[in-house]
Design a protein around this nucleic acid. Sequence first.
DNA 1: CTGTTAGCGCCTTCAT
DNA 2: ATGAAGGCGCTAACAG
Lengths: 343, 343
Amino acid sequence: MSASIEDVAKRAGVSIATVSRSLRGLPDVAASTRDRVVTAARELDYVASPFAARLASGRSSTLGVVVPFINRWFFAEVLGAVETVLSAAGYDLLLHNLGDSDGRERFFSMLPVRKRVDAVLVVSLALSDYEVEALSSLELPVGVLGVKHPGLFSVRIDDVAAARSAVRHLLSLGHRRIALIGGDTDDPMRFTPPHHRGTGYRDALTDAGIDVDPALEGLGYFTVAGGEAAMLQLLALDERPTAVFAESDEMAYGAMRTIRRAGLRVPYDIAVVGFDDHATAGLLDLSTVRQPVAEQGALLARGLLASLAHDTEPSDLVLDTELVVRGSTVPAASVYAQVGSGD
Amino acid sequence: MSASIEDVAKRAGVSIATVSRSLRGLPDVAASTRDRVVTAARELDYVASPFAARLASGRSSTLGVVVPFINRWFFAEVLGAVETVLSAAGYDLLLHNLGDSDGRERFFSMLPVRKRVDAVLVVSLALSDYEVEALSSLELPVGVLGVKHPGLFSVRIDDVAAARSAVRHLLSLGHRRIALIGGDTDDPMRFTPPHHRGTGYRDALTDAGIDVDPALEGLGYFTVAGGEAAMLQLLALDERPTAVFAESDEMAYGAMRTIRRAGLRVPYDIAVVGFDDHATAGLLDLSTVRQPVAEQGALLARGLLASLAHDTEPSDLVLDTELVVRGSTVPAASVYAQVGSGD
DNA sequence: CTGTTAGCGCCTTCAT
DNA sequence: ATGAAGGCGCTAACAG
């Protein structure tokens, strides 16, 4: 077996208590003593057994991170940022991927993070009362990304306002018949974005005095393929839209593809705005709403770590988004005429 | 605090040893006793403290998973599959994302998984001797995905053969001037695919009696943007290629985009083959080499778990790949003529 | 089949 | 500034 604290103590000629104090950087240790201990530890290639330390201290230096689908761009991006923060702080990251509603149910009923993490970070789930209660029963700091819950830490963007700004952009270009490609608000996994971004879309239209037309709202399920299919339906309408707001860039990609396949041009026949500013949005010249993805994850992770260190109160942080106008949006065809007539 | 094993023991009227045995499903416990214990545990909402259990047993029921970049499609896909297997088996997953060569260096020198996992799973890294030695020093089962190392478990595909089949496909269509868009073989992160797939490309050409032309090998860095840039250079050649083999679908997407932007047609002016059968390859009608991504992760995870359970010997599993021909590859223009002339 | 009893390796008072 | 000693909560012989 590898070296234990006692081996180090013997080699340094001190007690195990002093070894513990020295190696953890606690005060009240003579510099010379600490040096001897550190040297001995290095020579023995010693690292403390985390389990023994956790059992004795009650702290686990571990964060539980819960994501709905690890293999989607947004979640992977968040996870990467969280991992960076945690590993820099010497924390372990226990990963839980829900996958589907069964996995979700299993997670919240079993709570596999019980007695093994100091805090939990949940990404982009609209939590039910039951789920919030389950998390609260852990009596740990809990952070949620994307939603606000009383008593929980949160970092998010204002999805409603962000969506509104995207649709307003289209309105300002003269578009009046604007479609929505969104997620399923009845999805069993209950993501937060579909609700909020859909609301922002409708708000913007209403504010502009335009009636909301349910026929213009397609379901894209946050995938490229879904965006493609949704756009196909929209093109089949008697009066097709002149612009589309997709609740994610990936759905926007699908929509653009369908539009072009139908022999129409983006943006001249149909303008498209996405949401996220996904890595390839620039390449595809897609106008979109940029949100700070990694930053949300990093800030939430840091907030939780800070709370563990100083017992801070739950906070709610709302980050800014930014409309990025690229080539996929231009004035509606109808506007050219109006402008030409000097309106 | 929450209930401990002693609370359960008292409530069930047995000793803590019996509680331990009952709850872990060990033999030699009377059914009636076990029932009482299980009931008591449920009533108290008891779960064993993993740290105490780990300290006492020496087993951690935890796997360390190391990925180069969590936010790339391939790794996220693998990670998802691994997580599914582990959580089903009651194992915890400790995630380590290397990110860059600094992170990599840090991981292998500090070995933050030390004393906290039962096995380690490393994804797609060409390990240096030093790194293999570091992993071996853990004296744990180690699995690597994508490469073979003596003494380590591995699951992989035959990258050389797979790449060769893709290039052969182009050759069989009559293409003679075939470009490669690959990863940087000098990349400090040293992925395994660039080496092997590049070799397969060159082998296929050589086998067909075609000289390998370094000018036809572009660097796409496994990103869409990189593929785009590499293709731009290839188009600038005096004699441009009639076909391209990209070592990943994402690079192929970039290449296709550049080709079209240049006013050329895929596949008629330039045929494109990718690698992976990425989720959107079908949508983009890209011919490619399908590899079982999630399956590789799942099999490796299961192999490691099996090794923990039965102390099996390290195994090396090579999974099949499959050439998926779609619309991005057709016979070279030159071939039409030949066919037309009755050749 | 069940109970007793050492540890597992460290942290943390409490003394000194 | 350092040491001694009692847990932390469980597992794993060993008895019986």
